[in-house]
Amino acid sequence: MIPEVSIQSLALSRGGRQLFSRLILKLSPGEAIALIGRNGAGKTSLLRAIAGLINPDEGEIAFGGVEPAEAREAIHLLGHLDGLKSSRTARDELAFWTGFGGGAPAAVEAAAARLELIPLLDLEVRRLSAGQRRRLALARLLAAPRPLWLLDEPLSPLDAEWRGRFGEIMGEHLATGGMILAAVHDPLPLATRTVEVGR
């Protein structure tokens, strides 16, 4: 468990262009922060930097005394790309990411049921619609629980009903002390704060 995420004076460049500098942000248990900003402002890069996939130019990302390498085990990253293999069945993919993420095998069915994926589990991922694929990716968050969710446009392929229902899932995660940092263009349900990136 990581007690908080604290970002101090962060500066980040991509391809020789500075995206932002002097970014300060603190995320505490039970909080959901919506990252907003124009395209290319650095929202995705910020999420990837927190996940440890890219190194910032300056500044510090701290996890309340937990070592960054150890903190990675507490992070779920859901990017633009869903990390699913189109040739495998939804069940195989969910079972793999659950097992590899340290979740219990029984959590596969439970997570699939919560996202109403049971009838789709034996289909190849390539047969799923964009919204169904996103729900399958979101099921990973439930099947192998981790306290910090880094979400990049989590709602974009979802219809209005599922946007609302994902809001409920987020609410349950926050109620158990979870933290959510989401890059969004649309309003994020239950966001406690909004931070504009790139200014």
């Binding site: 996939l53 990675r72 990017g79 590899f100």
Partner: peptide, 17 residues
């Protein structure tokens, strides 16, 4: 290449392995 293109490599890199 496929893991890089579909985002799996990001997720594998984040694992404790």
């Amino acid at each position: 290449e496929r893991d890089y293109e579909d985002g799996s490599l990001d997720l594998l890199t984040l694992s404790p392995v």
